[in-house]
Nucleic acid binder design. Structure first.
Lengths: 212, 212
DNA sequence: ATAAAAAAGGTGCAAGTGCAACTTGTTAAT
DNA sequence: ATTAACAAGTTGCACTTGCACCTTTTTTAT
């Protein structure tokens, strides 16, 4: 997993901060981030903490668009869609580093090796995010809950090569990730259990149909 | 819309080709692209033509993951998920330029201004793709066909600021994009028509609930 | 000009899903 | 230790959707 300042020394990171004229902000739990930092043409990096991008629908519904953990990057030029109603909220004490996008693509900076390393890191991070989005789409494209679950299992299985999958969040969050009703998802999990296709122990699901 | 060689002169493009040691391949209509170019650690650019990335499911079903038009970029490090069964097929005579990913992130290249311009272009293109994926996810997250349609309308409306939306592909393709059954989508479109919320003329849909 | 193929449009029906409204179990707070 | 809050698990019911199977219209090929 690539991080923004990977392969950079502390002194190089300081030089980078100077070069880009970064700003660092600290937010409290449940504090909104966007009123403080302007959301146009910037890239934000979560130095520490945890925040969420929420989409606000016409009816007031809030949908979690993205989880921003330590080392996540975000910004209008990266992940956010244009002219949408969204909010970014710190879910812990969260430290955010803000960079002007224009400074990031300024060719003058490219003579500094530490800057090039940084740019490559960002490039990699975006590519990883891109893959994650593609994975989610592949799941969401499935019409039936069963197929969504099986696709999710399949992907996790291919990543770990293990017969059992550990769900890194609550079942409620899994239902949101698959974009299905929570209780309907439970019903389908029960069906899969009844058919002896899976076993569930807490957040660990064993795929009985895989013989490795 | 950013293109890979935007802001570069012909001679700069030639220098870039030399620097990166690119390869250019031509494919016929319906020819598979992946057996010819190795699919590991490369970036491909469609110089001309039209191709599709297809995901092949366990049951043989083929799902169109991505349409690659002129100036689209693709590659294992960008859009394709790991260890999946996929195919890239030319849908016309298609010219593909192939670049080693390693050469692309080689810091030595960054002293050349034309290379920096190229890298910034690629960065922009990926970011645009990223936004498109996010848009699609926002639609796919909706549980009901009606809500998917309305979300799609809303996004297109926000882009064009027009009361009427032109669907740039067939209704069949729209159904695939929304990941719903085609005839069920038609039924819902009919309901929206009956409720005087929309008007449909060929591929143009007028949003009667928007008063501009 | 005609046939063939594809897209658009429609409908009955069965199956699947969302939703509401529970119970039970677990975690966090005082 | 007790309560409160949240997650997990379950179920009935109504509604939506997918699917199969049509017809009609439009596009493409010969």
């Amino acid at each position: 997993m690539t991080t923004p300042f990977q392969d950079l020394t502390k002194s190089q990171i300081n030089k980078l901060y100077d070069l880009l004229g970064v700003h660092i902000y600290t937010f409290n739990d449940n504090q909104e981030i966007l009123p403080t930092i302007k959301n146009e043409n910037i890239i934000g990096i979560i130095l520490d903490g945890y925040a969420q991008i929420l989409n606000i629908e016409y009816n007031g519904n809030e949908i979690i668009t993205e989880n921003l953990y330590k080392n996540s990057i975000f910004g209008s030029n990266i992940s956010l869609t244009n002219s949408e109603n969204y909010q970014i909220i710190a879910r812990q004490e969260t430290i955010v580093l803000v960079i002007d996008y224009d400074k990031l693509i300024n060719p003058k900076n490219l003579v500094h090796n530490y800057f090039n390393i940084f740019l490559r890191n960002l490039f990699d991070i975006i590519n990883i995010k891109f893959k994650e989005k593609n994975e989610r789409i592949k799941i969401l494209e499935k019409k039936q809950i069963r197929d969504k679950l099986l696709e999710y299992f399949e992907m996790e299985h291919k990543k770990s090569r293990l017969k059992s999958i550990y769900i890194p969040f609550s079942f409620k969050d899994l239902a949101d990730y698959l974009a299905v009703n929570r209780s309907a998802m439970f019903r389908e999990l029960k069906h899969l259990k009844d058919e002896n296709l899976i076993e569930i122990k807490n957040r660990r699901i064993t795929l009985l149909y895989k013989n490795l």
